[in-house]
């Protein structure tokens, strides 16, 4: 059987013509999956005046960009986006369709999957091509997308397979796939898409919109000093900030510290926050729930500071300091200033 399979598509998320990192991470991963399948990776780009994004997408590995450029596609709303993507799927029949597990991706992908009657796996942390032997239904599937995601509050890792018609759809967490180095000489083809919208898809109006770019760049940080519930108060976070500043790093936080209102959600590391893999992660007063560890355990070096020697954070740490962060952090600052 030599049926031609479709290509690997990546939904490109952009804000004001700036491509989201997660989309480039997915183009990078998509290139790898496409190579394995002997197909190519292609981008689906929607917005208004976003044609200038195409070159970047080619540089990261896209062979083709489906460009839907229309004022009605800015700002992002679900219904028109879903319609345009659905029309494209029907026409070009991709094999795989990747979305970032961002707020936009997580509301758009299910709408598309529902209409296409396709399977959709949320928040994947890894993707692989492999065969699937479905013993229950006695069917063998060649070269399927293995959709790997944490489940049950991060306590288990499940591998999911979509056994129905293509495309195999997933959303993928930000920061988990590695971005390739762009190739400045790479070129590709732009396919202009006719945007056919009816009144039905444009019923939801954006009356007001307020947004700011994130001021915290956890994903790009080489050093992260993160505080948890053990920090004790918003006031005490000063110590975390000070250590981060001295070491030239960013400030991270566990969900418990964010929920307590001591620090903004933008700083949250873990399953419901950002996934990070810095050179050095210093966990201060963080007990180390599986949800938190899922977002930082790939860090190259992890130092855990906690008063409780039984805290689970010590099981992922490379260096453990059992002690009070209020004493240990000043010692670290002093030692660093003395050596550096």
């Amino acid at each position: 059987m030599s049926e031609q399979i479709g290509n690997v598509w990546v939904f490109i998320e952009q804000e004001g013509g700036k491509i989201a990192d997660v989309s480039l991470e997915l183009v990078s991963k998509g290139t790898e999956l496409a190579a394995k399948l002997g197909v190519s990776v292609e981008a689906v780009l929607l917005g208004s005046n976003v044609g200038n994004c195409c070159d970047t997408l080619f540089q990261y590995g896209c062979k083709k960009v489906y460009l839907a450029d229309d004022p009605r596609l800015e700002p992002f709303t679900v219904l028109p986006f879903a319609k345009v993507i659905m029309d494209l799927i029907k026409e070009y029949k991709p094999n795989i369709l990747l979305f970032g597990a961002t707020m936009k991706g997580r509301e758009l992908a299910p709408r598309v999957a529902s209409e296409k009657l396709a399977g959709l796996t949320a928040d994947c942390t890894d993707l692989r091509i492999d065969d699937f032997d479905d013993k229950v239904n006695k069917k063998f599937y060649k070269n399927k997308l293995m959709q790997i995601r944490p489940a049950f509050g991060g306590n288990i890792i499940a591998t999911i397979v979509n056994t129905w018609d293509d495309p195999q759809m997933v959303t993928v967490r930000e920061g988990v796939m590695k971005m390739v180095e762009p190739d400045p000489s790479a070129k590709g083809e732009v396919v202009k898409v006719d945007v056919a919208l009816t009144a039905e898809e444009t019923v939801v109006k954006v009356i007001e919109r307020m947004r700011q770019d994130k001021t915290v760049n956890l994903k790009g940080a080489q050093i992260i000093v993160a505080g948890g519930y053990g920090v004790g108060s918003a006031e005490n976070f000063k110590l975390i900030r000070e250590l981060a500043q001295v070491l030239g790093g960013e400030v991270g936080a566990s969900r418990a510290a964010v929920d307590a209102g001591w620090i903004d959600h933008d700083h949250q590391v873990g399953q419901t926050g950002v996934t990070v893999r810095p050179k050095l992660y210093i966990a201060c007063g963080i007990s180390g729930s599986v949800q938190h560890c899922a977002g930082m355990s790939d860090s190259k070096k992890i130092i855990a500071i906690n008063t409780d020697p039984a805290a689970p954070i010590f099981s992922v740490a490379h260096y453990g300091i059992v002690g009070d962060l209020n004493q240990v952090i000043p010692m670290m600052i002093k030692a660093y200033k003395a050596k550096a």
């Binding site: 399977g119 288990i156 499940a158 591998t159 999911i160 397979v161 979509n162 056994t163």
Partner: peptide
Amino acid sequence: PTKVKQIQ
């Protein structure tokens, strides 16, 4: 459409 292949 989605089936669980494996749980770890």
